[in-house]
Write a protein that binds this DNA or RNA. Structure first.
Lengths: 170, 170
DNA sequence: CCATACAGTTCTAAAAACGAACTGTCAAAT
DNA sequence: ATTTGACAGTTCGTTTTTAGAACTGTATGG
C-alpha cells in the first residue's frame, strides 16, 4: 500500500491519511493555521528541509488544501493560503492538540490555551453528535456500510477473515 | 527535527504527531477501533510489512496507547488492546473520517455511515466548545500561551521572526 | 510426519528524508 | 556599480526508513 493507493481505498480515513497523514504535512498545516503563508516562514518555523517543504506544499496545493496566490510580481512570489477544504481540517487539528493536552503534557501544564471568542472562555473541544448534540465516544457509535462501501470501509469491518480464535480467547 | 525530538517540543500537536503522526500508525489505530487485536489481523487487513507492524505496535505499547495482553500460554501470544489513552484518540479518528467523508468521496458516496446508539440516527461528528456548546471554527478561536509554553507553542505564534514583508504584501 | 496458525526476526534492495550547497530575481545598502 | 541579503526554490550525495521476502520457533490438527 503506497501513498497513491491510499487515496483510492474505499475508506474515508485512508483517503484522508493519503492527504495529511505524515508528520511534516501535519506540522505544515499547524503553521498554516498559525497564519504562516510563505516558504521561508514554514522553513524557519519547522526546520524542514527545503526540498521536502517544496514537495509537501506542491502536494497540498494539488489536493486543494492550499491555494498558491501571487503576492508580488518582479521576482514572482506566492503565498500558500488554506482553502475552505483546508480550513475544514480544523477539527482534526483541534482534536490532535486536545489529545496532546490531555495525555502528553509535562508537569508544567499545557503549552497553550484556547479561548472561544463567542463566550470568552478558555475551552476544550468536545465532539458531539450532529443529531442529538450528545458527546460521542467509540462505544456509542455503530457503523454500517454506506453507498460508497466496498470491502475495506472506514471504521467498519474490513477484510479480516482471520480472527477466528482456534483456541478460546484466554 | 527527528521523531524523538518531536515528543519534547512544547507543542501538544507536535507531541501527538510524535506518537500517531505517521501513515501506518494511523491505519493500525483504525484497525484497533475496528476491534482488530492480533498481529495477523493487523497484518492481513493492512498489508503492512511484518517488520514495521512489529515496530509500530511496540511503540504504541511504549506510549501507553495499546496494552499487550496475553491471551494464551504455550506459544505465548498477546493481543493489543486500546488503553483509555488510546480510546481517547477517537475524536481524532472521527474528525479524520469526517473530513474524508466531506472532501474525498467519489460519486458513489461515503463508504460508511455512523449511527449514534443513543439517538438512533446517522450522524456527523461536530466539534463544539466545552463551555458554551457552540460549534467551533478556526476564526472564532483565540490562543494564548499556557503554563507549559515556551517558544514554539501549539497553534500559537512560534519562532518565525521572518514574515516582515519588505515590499507591501500586494 | 506434515501442513497450518501465529507472532515475530532477519536480511537485502528500494524509496524517502536529510543536509548543505547552488540558482536566480530583485531591492537596498555601500 | 557592486555587494549583500531576502526570498523561493532546485540539485545532489549521504543517511535513514520502508518494502518485500524468507526464516525461526512453538504448537495443533490431521
Amino acid at each position: 500500500m503506497r501513498w497513491d493507493e491510499l487515496e483510492e481505498e474505499p475508506c474515508s480515513m485512508a483517503r484522508t491519511i493519503g492527504v495529511i497523514g505524515d508528520r511534516w504535512t501535519l506540522l505544515i498545516l499547524r503553521e498554516c493555521f498559525l497564519r504562516t503563508r510563505r516558504f521561508e516562514g514554514f522553513q524557519s518555523a519547522l526546520g524542514i528541509t527545503r526540498h521536502l517543504l517544496a514537495e509537501r506544499l506542491k502536494k497540498l496545493v494539488r489536493q486543494g488544501v492550499l491555494r498558491r496566490i501571487p503576492y508580488q510580481e518582479s521576482p514572482k512570489r506566492h503565498e500558500y493560503i488554506l482553502t475552505q477544504k483546508g480550513l475544514d481540517l480544523y477539527p482534526i487539528m483541534m482534536a490532535i492538540v486536545h489529545w496532546g493536552d490531555t495525555h502528553m503534557v509535562d508537569e508544567r501544564g499545557r503549552p497553550l490555551l484556547h479561548q472561544h471568542r463567542k463566550c470568552g472562555k478558555n475551552f476544550d473541544p468536545v465532539m458531539v453528535c450532529s443529531e442529538c448534540g450528545e458527546p460521542l465516544s467509540a462505544k456509542e457509535v455503530h457503523t454500517h456500510p454506506g453507498p460508497g462501501a466496498r470491502t475495506t470501509a472506514a471504521i467498519n469491518a474490513p477484510e479480516k477473515p482471520k480472527a477466528k480464535a482456534r483456541r478460546s480467547a484466554a
